[in-house]
């Protein structure tokens, strides 16, 4: 007779430096660790499955989706997971209160053709959200630009309206913002938190001399000092928020990152609201792409985790968004999610924030009265299933997390598979998540 409980096809396991066994399942997002004594039983179950659940260890494996009943069709589970994202009670809007920016970053890909959101678009967006709210369970707004804090009055106006609409219909609401941090004063942060903006992405590309070379003001002039003062002042607040300090690195700045991490430790270690995220600079479509000293893929894939480890060694947590990306659906790009749209300052609607000029990305228009016109032929290109059409993605252990849709733009442009950084180095990623999770408790 065969075994009744089989190992899931969505499992990965690895060992920590201290010899613990880590087991991850991408369909449930579970990560379990096992000591020496428990490992033989777990490894046997991961290899061939078991006849029936008996011990507490196998009970945990079953409850975590690491073992599944032999009759379960996991391909069907993955397919249903993708289908279940096509729902109308969720909404994610990426809103551009302005498309202008005060920075002139060397690697920026945006062309900044427009300034602040027009009064007509503001009125239309309020109407659209108010109408939609009655059908929603959850809503999420991402404030984006340009530099969104060049137009705080528009964020305020829209937030006030959204908060009223969502309160009226009891919609669970959260918001985040991608800002360069230049205007993120203590007073501004206090206001933003009141408007339910609790997740912040602020970029520092190295110590002052390095950062200012990469991310100076548009008319010239440094920005590091002012951002750093803002972050230090943010620490003095009692409010609940997370600030992801993003560090973009390239070949020239690899050796400067440790100095920045050391500086961050001096001022932020021990305050878990301040978290680190490392990403390689890319040729993202800007005018200076040819001159950018970008790292090779091999170097980038190594350094992301090396720097994250360096952060942990300096008591600086890894950004929670890394761990969240390993949850089911967590690595699917917003551009591929059917309930997500980008709203430009003039009411132009997009799916992707990295290719505003691309014709296929002009998916619709928001009208002054709140009506939305969508070109569903273009829309479909972004939200179609990547894992159903790509047999390699279909058979991959990471399928539930990314659904083959980590970056639909990359697949549309190149025809190639867009694997995430976490998936490329999954064992290192798991060990780093484990380090991060057990750091406080050790």
């Amino acid at each position: 007779m065969g075994n009744n409980l089989m190992p899931s096809r969505f499992n990965v396991h690895t060992y920590t430096d201290s010899g613990e066994l880590l087991v991850y399942n991408s369909y449930t997002g579970a990560i379990l660790s096992f000591s020496d004594g428990e490992q033989p039983e777990v490894l046997a179950a991961l290899k061939d499955g078991i006849v029936a659940q008996g011990s507490s260890v196998t009970a945990h494996l079953l409850a975590s989706g690491i073992l599944v009943p032999a009759h379960v069709d996991e391909f069907m589970r993955a397919k249903l997971l993708y289908q279940s994202s096509h729902r109308t009670d969720l909404m994610h809007l990426i809103v551009m209160p302005t498309e202008a920016c005060n920075f002139g970053c060397t690697y920026c890909y945006q062309t900044f053709p427009r300034g602040k959101m027009t009064p007509q678009t503001i009125a239309g967006l309020k109407q659209f959200v108010d109408h939609k709210a009655r059908f929603l369970q959850s809503a999420s707004i991402s404030w984006f630009g340009g530099e969104p804090l060049l137009a705080p009055e528009i964020i305020e106006q829209l937030s006030d309206s959204f908060l009223q609409s969502f309160a009226r219909y009891d919609v669970d609401y959260s918001a985040d913002i991608a800002t360069n941090g230049y205007y993120l004063t203590k007073e501004m942060l206090t206001k933003l938190v009141k408007w339910k903006i609790t997740r912040y992405m602020v970029t520092l590309d190295g110590p002052a001399i390095v950062h200012d070379r990469k991310r100076g003001l548009r008319g010239g002039g440094g920005t590091f000092e002012r951002i750093f003062v803002n972050l230090k002042n943010a620490r003095l607040l009692d409010e609940q928020f997370e600030i992801y300090i993003r560090v973009n690195f390239d070949e020239e700045t690899l050796s400067d990152v440790p100095e920045l991490v050391h500086m961050l430790k001096e001022h932020f270690a021990g305050d878990e609201r301040f978290q680190l995220l490392f990403r390689p600079v890319g040729r993202w479509g800007g005018p200076h792409d040819d001159q950018l000293p970008i790292c090779s893929d091999r170097t980038a894939n190594l350094k992301i985790w090396e720097f994250a480890q360096l952060g942990l060694d300096h008591d600086m947590p890894m950004a929670s968004i890394v761990e969240n990306s390993m949850m089911p659906g967590g690595s699917v790009c917003y551009a591929a999610k059917p309930y997500s749209l980008v709203v430009g300052a003039n009411g132009q609607l997009y799916k992707c924030t990295c290719a505003f000029e691309e014709e296929d990305n002009h998916v619709g228009r928001l009208h002054d009265d709140g009506r939305v016109d969508l070109d569903y032929d273009k829309f479909a290109k972004w939200v179609s299933s990547g894992d159903d059409t790509d047999p390699v993605c279909g058979a991959c252990y990471y399928r539930p997390a990314c659904q083959g849709n980590h970056c639909p733009l990359f697949r549309m442009r190149t025809g190639n598979r867009p694997c995430s950084f976490e998936k490329r180095k999954i064992r290192t990623a798991l060990e780093t998540v484990w380090q991060d999770a057990t750091r406080v408790r050790r």
Binding site: G29, S33, M327, P328, P400, C419
Partner: peptide, 14 residues
């Protein structure tokens, strides 16, 4: 055994 991250019920949640 330690639970580093709890499982979620996924459907109906470079």
């Amino acid at each position: 055994m330690k639970v580093i991250r709890k499982p979620v019920s996924p459907i109906g949640a470079a």
